[in-house]
Simulated assay, not measured.
Amino acid sequence: MASLTCLQLNINKELLKGQLHESRFSRVRMLGSRKPSICMSRFKNLPLLCTKNLAWESSLPYASTEDGDIIKGSNIVEPIDAEEAPEVPFLQSENDVIELKNQPSMLLRPLKWPMWLLGPSVLLVTGVIPTLWLPLSSVFLGPNIAGLLSLVGLDCIFNMGAMLFLLMADACGRPKESSSVRVSHIPCAYKLWNLGASLLGFLIPLVLLFASYKGTLQPHLPSISSAVLLGPYLLLLSIQVLIEMLTWHWKSPVWLVAPVVYEAYRVLQLMRGLTLATEVGSPAWMVEGLRGLVSWWVLVLAIQLMRIAWFAGFTSLDKQ
């Protein structure tokens, strides 16, 4: 840097001498329009008078030896051979960075593929097969406490299978904490709709039972028979509301699937109640109430499936 400063001083002196000998302003303009290489050609042979280095230039932090080693202070660092160096993936664009972040772990990938078949199989074995193929005569012992507990036991088996299925689905769908995928926002309208549908599913059977207790609906249905028909239904509906609130609180990726799992089984549960209505001798108003509940939950299930289709299309459009 010091040598360059001295060279600049000598150049300025020569320029001043040259300007004194110029007689016309046009010639000065012509000199200024020349290329820098031409203008500086006359100063190629000028001697460099300043050779003193500054203090910070006198001792460089790095130096090299004849063998190619690098000296840093008093330590010698050997150069790294490019052939022996570990291979580092070269990222050509920002898309490569996003793909590396979103790529699932290689250790978890072999475990996720069996879950795609294991989870639905567990749901099928615990929910649909006992409800459709298990004869009710071997489980239901009549309109008494034993018959009520046997029906509740079937629903508890399904609930355990549903919980296991939701846990496996959550493990497959939840992104890692280091991933750049943002957590999907749960719309408030969706929450209100689910809570409203569940609340209406609670109110319809409770109003029927209250009207029967007051004598508005005749004939009167005994309490044990009404518990057999509507007790497991109300219990599983309460568990569904709790599961939905937990998935909303934990921001689980199964928040859109959990209602569909329970509502599909609820249709089978109410169809089972229609079969048992003839065995317990329930009146016509109870049978019509059960048919109305079946129709209501089929409608709710269809709306939930439409929401899943809408959310899948909206997510795909958002990614594009």
Rank of each mutant, 00 (worst) to 15 (best):
K176S: 11
K17C: 07
R27Q: 13
W193C: 05
L46V: 06
S3A: 02
P175F: 06
S226I: 02
P187T: 08
P61I: 00
P120Q: 00
E87V: 03
V294I: 09
A284C: 04
A211D: 06
R27V: 13
D67H: 05
I98T: 03
S74K: 12
M245S: 12
L276N: 04
S178R: 05
A146L: 03
Q320G: 10
T315M: 09
F25I: 08
V125A: 13
L151Q: 14
S137D: 13
F25Q: 04
L317K: 12
S180G: 08
I145P: 09
L154S: 02
V181F: 09
G153C: 00
W285I: 01
L237R: 03
P205G: 03
T131M: 11
S74H: 06
S252N: 13
L149H: 07
S226C: 00
N12M: 04
S225C: 10
K191P: 04
L108W: 01
M1T: 01
I145S: 02
M40S: 14
W297F: 10
S225P: 11
N194F: 01
A189I: 14
P79V: 05
L301N: 08
L49G: 12
W193Q: 06
W310E: 12
G18Y: 08
C156Q: 09
I239M: 15
L7F: 12
S137E: 14
R29P: 08
W116Q: 10
L200M: 10
A169F: 07
S198N: 14
K72S: 04
G215N: 06
A63W: 03
C6S: 13
R182A: 10
S238W: 15
E78Q: 07
A211H: 01
E244H: 06
V97H: 10
L31A: 13
V181R: 14
W116L: 12
D96C: 09
Q19A: 15
V241L: 15
S179E: 08
S178D: 00
F210R: 10
S137C: 10
E99Y: 01
W113N: 12
L48F: 00
C39S: 15
D81T: 07
I308L: 14
Y265I: 09
Q304K: 11
S59W: 05
G142M: 02
P283E: 03
P61E: 04
P143H: 00
L20S: 14
F165K: 09
A146Q: 10
G32N: 15
E288C: 13
M1V: 02
W116A: 04
L117F: 11
K251I: 01
